[in-house]
Simulated scan of single mutants.
Amino acid sequence: MQLVVARIGRAHGIKGDVTVEVRTDEPELRLAPGAVLATDPPSAGPLTIEAGRVHSGRLLLRFEGVRDRTAAEALRNTLLIADVDPEELPEEEDEYYDHQLMDLDVVTVDGAEVGRITEISHLPSQDLFVVERPDGSEVYVPFVQEIVVEIDLEEQRAVIDPPPGLIDDRAEIASARRAAEEGAGNAPAESSSGDEPKRDQD
């Protein structure tokens, strides 16, 4: 099975280094020196990683045969693709490869249908599920334990316990408006501020 593990960004310096947007939880394995990666577009590769290092929080790679900034810039936006055994599992418990999570049905803890996972977005602070709803709209679900309470690969579903407003902001606003209207007849209007639901950033 072929999986996208990174996207090449801009050139760094004049010796052929490039920044990469990592799309794998195991960059030390998938993007190690000596790894040979297919590319999209195919004409850009295959590429063999010669060296890698972290600079200012970003991973820099250098590929064999790419020796100057011009050659590095020509690779910009190229996707790096690794061959992965579909039966292979991550070493850590409760970790998953992107391909295991794609197309899972997403439901709430009370059984309400939310949609299906169409993409996993790897951000510096956390991963996000991009969930396509039945009406074609999208909702973003942080992949943290407090919200994603169960991944059931056998049943092909992800169970979530969303904080107020994550799934349907309009419902939360309407509920708050109704509460304000009901309380308006009993007490003078008063402005107050409460804490927004906090989401785990780990």
Rank of each mutant, 00 (worst) to 15 (best):
residue 100 Q to A: 13
residue 107 V to P: 02
residue 132 E to L: 10
residue 160 I to Q: 03
residue 136 G to W: 07
residue 197 P to I: 03
residue 24 T to E: 03
residue 169 D to N: 12
residue 194 G to D: 13
residue 9 G to D: 13
residue 155 E to W: 00
residue 126 Q to T: 09
residue 150 E to S: 12
residue 74 A to Q: 11
residue 9 G to S: 09
residue 54 V to I: 06
residue 79 L to T: 02
residue 73 E to A: 13
residue 96 Y to G: 05
residue 172 E to R: 11
residue 155 E to D: 12
residue 134 P to A: 12
residue 128 L to G: 07
residue 129 F to S: 08
residue 177 R to V: 06
residue 156 Q to L: 09
residue 177 R to H: 08
residue 83 D to K: 03
residue 1 M to L: 10
residue 20 V to D: 03
residue 60 L to N: 00
residue 3 L to I: 00
residue 38 A to T: 06
residue 144 V to N: 09
residue 85 D to W: 04
residue 79 L to N: 11
residue 65 G to W: 00
residue 128 L to F: 11
residue 150 E to A: 13
residue 159 V to T: 14
residue 141 V to L: 08
residue 196 E to R: 13
residue 193 S to I: 11
residue 120 I to Q: 13
residue 97 Y to M: 11
residue 13 G to T: 13
residue 42 P to V: 11
residue 123 L to K: 15
residue 70 T to P: 02
residue 96 Y to E: 04
residue 94 D to N: 11
residue 126 Q to S: 08
residue 195 D to K: 12
residue 181 E to R: 07
residue 62 R to Q: 10
residue 46 P to W: 02
residue 32 A to V: 00
residue 188 P to H: 05
residue 157 R to P: 06
residue 141 V to W: 00
residue 112 A to T: 04
residue 32 A to G: 01
residue 115 G to M: 02
residue 139 V to I: 10
residue 113 E to Q: 14
residue 3 L to C: 06
residue 102 M to I: 13
residue 51 A to G: 14
residue 91 E to A: 15
residue 129 F to Y: 08
residue 168 D to C: 08
residue 24 T to C: 07
residue 118 T to L: 05
residue 86 P to L: 03
residue 187 A to V: 11
residue 4 V to I: 10
residue 65 G to A: 03
residue 146 E to D: 14
residue 55 H to G: 06
residue 23 R to D: 03
residue 41 P to R: 04
residue 65 G to L: 00
residue 195 D to I: 00
residue 178 R to H: 13
residue 113 E to I: 07
residue 8 I to V: 10
residue 128 L to Q: 02
residue 186 N to H: 04
residue 148 V to I: 07
residue 163 P to F: 03
residue 154 E to F: 01
residue 118 T to P: 02
residue 156 Q to D: 05
